[in-house]
């Protein structure tokens, strides 16, 4: 079994003007997805990220503070899952709830160096 990271990229809910009802519906789907992965025993962990960003760029170490509204492609969080290969993770990612909001799932394999 290998470990993969599913990185979630998309816009901030608050900027999309979702109603509380829509928000709750979304959360319900996220919970259900988490439960499904847990039940399948593939979930290894995960974290959500707050929308505040501080960027340090370049030789001059230029610092910029950004809010979610200024960034279209915001990394919102990640899940770590155990799976055979990319195809298996792709299957898991089918249940990602936010494709219809233009959301993206990026799958990356965790590097293991002691082979």
């Amino acid at each position: 079994m290998k470990e993969f990271m599913m990185i979630f990229i998309g816009a901030d809910y608050t900027d999309l003007g979702l109603s509380p009802e829509e928000l709750q519906g979304r959360m319900g789907k996220w919970f259900a997805w988490g439960d499904k992965m847990e039940k399948a025993g593939v979930l290894r962990g995960g974290n959500a990220l707050t929308p505040d960003i501080r960027r340090i760029v370049g030789e001059n170490r230029t610092v910029t503070d950004l809010t979610s509204a200024e960034v279209k492609e915001l990394v919102g969080g990640y899940y770590l899952v155990a799976a055979k290969d990319f195809d298996a993770v792709q299957e898991i990612a089918q249940d990602f709830p936010d494709y219809d909001l233009g959301g993206t799932v990026e799958i990356r394999e965790i590097m293991v160096f002691d082979k």
Partner: peptide
């Protein structure tokens, strides 16, 4: 969440679906 919103009480802000990972 629903109840707090209906009663216009302060509820924690949900920014993204990923926030549920933290919950």
């Amino acid at each position: 969440f629903r109840k707090l919103n209906t009663e216009k009480k302060h509820a924690p802000t949900i920014y993204q679906g990923t926030d549920t990972i933290a919950i």
